[in-house]
Design a protein around this nucleic acid. Structure first.
Lengths: 326, 326
DNA sequence: TGTATGTCTGTAACCGGTTACACATTGAGG
DNA sequence: CCTCAATGTGTAACCGGTTACAGACATACA
């Protein structure tokens, strides 16, 4: 690899001068600058980021920690983060945490060891000491942290919208699948839906669920229709679970949306491709990723930040698992 | 941050000794070792990877370059890579190339600047100079490079299996959606299918497609049924395209699989969730990711490697877009 | 003419590790 | 008791950048 010394020798100047040229800092004579630039070009030189990072104690790397990139919701978040970071010349060190504190700690550890300048995380426990003790800017994505920077969607409004959609379209006996208790955003959705139904004095039941995995979701779907066979409206905790419910309903010979209406949450790409296509509450995942990146960059670069927590809007996406309104 | 100097002072030894203890290299007296270990624990010290990387000119970082993590096929590859790398203590710098040579070069550049020890890439042009001139181990994933390490699925056999499945199940007028011409694996699938149909002297048509994106796929699906309305069997270049074809067929009022049979390629998670569920040729994406990581690790660590190119088996997954055989 | 200021450049210390080398100590074997 | 190898430890150079500082020179101004 060619180093700054090679360039210096080739251009007949000192390394300090080369450094000044590359970073466009301090005084450099026009002629000298040209000589150095020529040398850089001829030797095809690019500075070693590691050496830079060592001296400055700062890299151009950002840590990104997601539960599981295989879950169709997260690639969009990741892509949003990546695109925005890329625009400002930051690169991502990426890890799947599988919601394991152990793995999370491990990753945070190596992030620090690699001098990352910031961290974006979708952890279930933003208030854990692992984050509090970090003297690095951290942005929580799709998660809510008390009093720490975060970007998330308005789950409560989403829950409300889902419930409202079902009620308006005539569901009388609604079942809410309550998402994992340890995920605050999931609980917000649940709360929003429950509040609206309470307000309208509509009868509803709750089925508890503990994860967002499809394999588990099938189990809860079966349980749902066994416990509440006369349900005519289901609010699922996300689109994966909604898909499982849809499948189970069809398997039981129910007509969707005639016999049962179903509303999901997230609007993952899959949702529009199902038959019938899934009605759902859309979260702007890609934009949330971008927003989180934007926020982190502001912290890293010391730009003043007005809103440290950003709540993104949600919207009801009407497809074919809810009845058409006249 | 606590450095090796702090530990040395705290333990009353030199930095060299601390280094020896951490790396378990050279002679260190038992008592000294304990003192150092205590100091490490008390100060909660972890070595700075950047400094290490600078001296050794090698990091514990691997570059991973995928076209687009948002495409549901790639997260599984990525996850396979990540899991295997994680087991050996390597971390990933991740980038989306969008099949753009520009972005690819950019990423490769910064990978090198960050002293990555290896690179896994799903590029469309493995033989480009950008890779040839690299003096880094590179493994091509889901792509075929002439004479360079790569991991991919047996596309030709896959194409053959797809065609065979349709023929066995009675399709007489088959249309093959030929995938993007610049993607070798896609062409292999096409070739495999065409060969089998030639062999059986079955009439078939070809519709050209240029990408794997869903929006485009819908267009080709419409074109397909317009140009060949009597088609009773479709071999799609991947599951995304197959999904679009399925939608279009249903929209046109065709019964699937009675009127038209459809076979996809990849077996992305979506496929089993469609109604009717998609019959497809399964590629073991997760395992391919793992295999690529495994191969790269062997190169990095200098382990002798017997097979530099690994072809993974494919299998026909029978679901509901093909007729049941008796 | 003397001094201050601005321009230009190089030397060397520094970032936090690793390791070559020198040196001291110990124990075994003759 | 001497020699030699094995063991244990520290000093300092090195990785490839950045930057504080000093010195040289030119120009402006009193």
């Amino acid at each position: 690899m060619t180093t700054i010394k090679d360039v210096a020798k080739h251009a007949g100047v000192s390394v300090a001068t080369v450094s000044r040229v590359i970073n466009a800092i301090g005084y450099v004579h026009e002629d000298t600058r040209r000589k150095v630039e020529d040398a850089v070009r001829e030797l095809n030189y690019t500075p070693n980021e590691v050496a830079r990072s060592l001296y400055k104690r700062k890299s151009r790397l950002i840590g990104l920690l997601l539960p599981d990139i295989t879950n169709p919701y997260f690639p969009q978040l990741a892509r949003g983060v990546e695109d925005r970071m890329q625009e400002s010349g930051f690169r991502l060190i990426f890890g799947n945490s599988d919601e394991s504190k152990e793995k999370e700690k491990d990753y945070i550890q190596t992030f620090i060891q690699n001098n990352v300048v910031g961290l974006i995380s979708s952890t279930n426990d933003p208030d854990s000491s692992a984050y509090a003790s970090l003297n690095l800017p951290v942005v929580f994505l799709d998660r809510i942290a008390s009093d720490r920077p975060s970007v998330y969607a308005d789950g409560r409004e989403g829950g409300r919208l889902a419930a409202e959609a079902l009620v308006e379209r005539g569901s009388k006996r609604i079942t809410i699948l309550q998402g994992p208790e340890h995920i605050r955003t999931a609980q917000d959705r649940f709360r929003g839906a429950a509040e609206l139904l309470e307000g309208k004095a509509i009868d509803y039941h709750i089925v508890h669920t503990a994860s967002f995995a499809f394999a588990d979701a099938e189990k809860w779907a079966r349980q749902l229709f066994k416990q509440h066979p006369d349900t005519d409206g289901v609010i699922a905790s996300n689109d994966i679970v909604a898909t499982a419910v849809l499948h189970e309903a069809l398997r039981l010979g129910k007509k969707v949306p005639h016999d049962v209406q179903i509303v999901g949450f997230d609007d993952i790409p899959l949702s529009s491709l199902l038959s019938p296509a899934l009605s759902t509450i859309r979260q702007p995942a890609y934009d949330m990723g971008r927003a989180a990146a934007e926020l982190l960059i502001a912290f890293v670069e010391g730009t003043p930040v007005v809103n440290r927590t950003i709540q993104m809007p949600v919207a009801f996406v009407e497809r074919d698992t809810t009845r058409k309104m006249l």
